[in-house]
Computed example of a mutant assay.
Amino acid sequence: MTKYRIAYLMCTATVAATGLGAAAPPVAHHGVHVVWPDESIQKAVDAAKPGDTVLLAPGTFHQSVKIGTPGLTLRGMGRATVLEPGTKKDANKCAEGGNGICVVGTKDRNVEGVTVTSVTVTGFARTGVFSMATDGLTVQNVTAVKNGVWGIAQERSVRGRFLDNFARDNGDAGLFLANTITEEAGASDTEGTVIERNRLEGNRIGVTVRRLRNLVVGRNHLTGNCAAVFVVGDENKPKAGAVTVRDNYIAHNNKSCPKTPRLDALEGSGIVLTGVDDTLVTGNVVRGNVGKSPLSGGIVLFKSFVGVTSDRNRISDNVVEGNSPADLVNTDLGKDNAFVANTCRASQPKGLC
């Protein structure tokens, strides 16, 4: 008799002896919907119930999908499952917007608990994975490559988890999080969103956090971008900030990107803070970021383009070496910004190291 069989019989006997069998609550059963490359992902998603999994088989899917079902998991087989734009028009707004996977709630209610994992999204005109009005979305082990604007993007959402993703050669940011994309508004509270253990290479910007509060950017690996991490605020109220940027490895982000209507030319920027308050930058290794942009340098506290100061930010206990024009740069006129216990050699102005 096998150990598994013995354990099963012992468990059954215990339940019978204690009389718990009759009182046991029913077990919730969640369905699994398997989709092959020649089948419609959207049809499987539309048929799924909350808590179900839509499992994508290995292969290339030439289509987009929009998810609005709470608790749904969209899972592939790692890099063997690829989503690319279709040759025929998809009948959903996700595809019409140039996106691969969309997770979208409504104006009045966030969609809760969705997971997107273990898929590759590539070649979409706008975004590989886009989300809006979500609560507790998890995007994990996603590969987002060569999408026109963002690899993975989110707006108007809370409690997101962006873990172990790989974003490379996307037109703007590998990971982009904002309060809202289409209008001006004050910074919103993400209620503890986490961006951790991602690998971000060759994008215009590795991670952009725009007009948000209360989130962590930690333990990511960023190299070969024009700029690695941008934390951005503006004149709207409440102000952006209360972000923690910690324990990231940021090296040789020396790709050159031209000026845009919103942002100066980028080259050789490690971590940039502009127009934000109460942000902590600590425990990061920032090396070899070299450029001639106004935003170049290892860790840069940059004067806001709209004249808003950055106040009460703390840059401490980082290893910042071999960056140019300096390891630490402060061009902001804000109050109570502190540069403390960093390992570095050169700063602008002098005296920050």
Results as ranks from 00 to 15, higher is better:
G98W: 12
G78W: 01
A187L: 06
C94L: 05
T193I: 03
D332P: 01
D317Q: 11
L212K: 11
N342G: 05
C344E: 13
K49V: 12
D169Y: 15
F61R: 02
V231D: 01
A133C: 09
A44D: 09
V32M: 14
A144I: 11
V142H: 06
K237E: 10
N170K: 06
T117M: 09
F230Y: 14
V129L: 07
H252M: 13
R345G: 08
R161C: 01
A28R: 09
V320I: 15
W150L: 08
G51P: 08
G298S: 06
P58S: 02
Q140T: 15
G51R: 06
A185C: 05
G31M: 08
A13K: 04
S293Q: 09
Q140N: 09
R345A: 14
T134F: 05
E235Y: 11
T14K: 04
A125K: 15
V158F: 12
S347K: 03
K66Q: 13
K66V: 11
D108K: 15
G270L: 00
D172N: 11
T120R: 15
P70L: 01
G31W: 05
D135Q: 08
K89W: 07
H221Q: 10
T208D: 01
L222M: 14
E235T: 08
V329Q: 03
F124G: 04
G297V: 09
V111H: 05
A125D: 14
D277R: 14
V129E: 05
R204W: 10
R312M: 03
A185N: 10
P26H: 10
G100A: 03
E96R: 11
A80T: 13
E39H: 05
R109K: 15
D327E: 08
T2M: 00
Y4N: 13
T223G: 02
G218C: 02
G59A: 06
T81M: 04
H62N: 13
L200H: 00
E184R: 13
N170L: 10
S64V: 13
G97W: 13
L215K: 07
G59N: 10
S304Q: 07
V281L: 12
F305D: 07
T274R: 15
V209L: 15
A227L: 03
V290M: 04
L215M: 15
V207W: 00
L74V: 02
V45C: 07
P258F: 07
F124N: 04
S131G: 14
G186P: 07
R345P: 03
V231L: 11
V114I: 03
N253K: 07
T60C: 13
G298P: 07
V158A: 09
C344A: 08
F162C: 02
I152F: 05
D332H: 10
H30I: 10
G59D: 11
L280R: 12
K350W: 06
E235K: 13
D189V: 04
V245S: 02
L328R: 04
A227D: 00
P238W: 15
T117D: 07
K66M: 12
A57Q: 12
D336E: 11
V45Q: 05
V306I: 12
N179I: 12
D135N: 15
N214Q: 09
L56K: 06
L212D: 08
R109C: 04
K335H: 09
K239Q: 11
G351Y: 13
G128H: 02
